[in-house]
Simulated assay, not measured.
Amino acid sequence: MDGDHLRAFLLIGAMLFGTPLFAAQLNLQLGASTRTWQTEELLKHPQVQTINISNDVSYKRDMRYQAVPLAALLTGVKPEDHLQAVALDGFAAELAAAPLLNKHGAQAWLAIEEPGKPWPALSANKPSAGPFYLVWTDPQAGNISPEQWPFQVASIKRMAPVAERFPALLPDPALKVDDPVNQGFALFQKNCLACHRLNGAGDAQFGPDLNIPYNPTEYFGADFLKRYIRDPQSLRHWPQAKMPGFSEEVLPAADLDKLVAYLQHMAGRKTQP
């Protein structure tokens, strides 16, 4: 069942049986620590507070939420760990743990949609960002990408690093560690892997594979590919488009060059799923 249908199902159930609207649960699988949090429990958490988010990534305007510092929920997680936030629609955000544990600068929060007080719809005929939404205060301080704002979150899991789980994503091992292609691979994990697979590798169920059957560098000139990444709707406009644009602030020109270099490199390293 996709996010829209689940949302409709919950709404009908609430209307029929008088249950609170959109009460939900968040499943945390953190290795030795596993816990399921209910909406009501999170709203009573001792660290819950009202936070204001300027220019919210998903709503494109200022928003106010009831939220808990995400670090307060990540029991036993260490800065070197790797996490994955999975949304109701299959979006799978790969997240380094260290930024999520910050208590200063860019700070991660779990925003909680209150039963009976649903957030606005993300767009016409779409649900809200709830029931749980990972938001950031002072995101500029940590160079936080839009892909690090997953909404409709259903679970957060501690996972092995991407390179270990998906070797088909790896560049040529002969490259130096600081080669721009390897730096581009890190940027791909941060900005692209939440929605896309490559060589069939990845957990996302959202966007197309970026190497099979063709890599975008094989049908886009480099300049047009960069324009597409900056503003997808400027080259391909359709109402249901979901890919966000990556501004210069989020993905500086030098980083965009490295990301495209990784994609070009992987066009020569195709492996069938």
Rank of each mutant, 00 (worst) to 15 (best):
F166S: 10
Q205K: 14
P161R: 07
A124D: 12
G116N: 15
Q38Y: 13
M63Q: 02
L100T: 02
F166Y: 10
Q29V: 10
F22C: 12
P131V: 11
P216L: 09
L73S: 06
A32N: 12
G221Y: 11
R35G: 09
N52T: 12
M63S: 05
P239L: 06
N199Y: 01
L21W: 04
G221W: 08
Q38S: 11
Q152T: 08
A201S: 10
A92L: 02
Y262H: 09
I112T: 02
P252K: 05
A111I: 00
A67M: 04
G202S: 11
G268A: 03
T19D: 13
R165K: 11
G13L: 09
Q140P: 03
L10D: 04
I144H: 09
A204N: 07
D257K: 01
A96N: 10
N27Q: 15
D255T: 04
I156Y: 02
Y133K: 04
H237E: 12
A92W: 00
L21E: 02
Q107N: 08
D257H: 10
P131W: 13
R158E: 02
V260M: 06
V153T: 10
F188N: 00
G31A: 11
S145R: 05
P161N: 01
L169P: 04
V250E: 00
L74E: 01
D2I: 01
P146K: 05
I53R: 06
V177W: 11
L198N: 07
E80K: 05
Q140W: 12
N125V: 15
E40Y: 01
T271V: 01
I112W: 12
L83Y: 05
C192V: 11
S123A: 15
L175P: 04
L28K: 13
G130R: 00
F185I: 07
A129N: 03
V153Q: 02
S54Q: 15
Q29G: 11
P273N: 12
V48R: 14
T217S: 14
P20I: 09
A92D: 01
P115G: 08
G31S: 12
H45N: 14
I12K: 07
D209E: 10
T39A: 07
D257C: 06
D62Q: 15
L259D: 02
Y228P: 01
G18K: 14
N52S: 15
H82P: 06
T271S: 06
H5R: 10
P131L: 11
Q189P: 05
G245H: 03
P252Q: 13
H196V: 05
E164H: 04
L198H: 04
N52I: 15
L210G: 08
F17H: 12
V260P: 02
N55K: 14
G268S: 07
L21V: 08
H45D: 14
E147H: 13
D62F: 05
A168W: 08
N125R: 13
G142L: 00
R35D: 13
W119G: 00
F206E: 10
P171K: 00
Q189G: 03
G116I: 06
P115I: 04
A261R: 04
L175G: 00
F9R: 15
N102D: 08
T34N: 15
K157I: 11
L70P: 00
A201E: 07
F220C: 04
R35W: 10
V250N: 01
K190C: 06
D89V: 08
T217F: 15
A129L: 03
F166T: 09
F132R: 09
D2W: 06
Q148T: 07
P208D: 13
F224V: 09
A160E: 08
Q66A: 03
N52D: 14
Y214K: 07
R230G: 06
L95F: 01
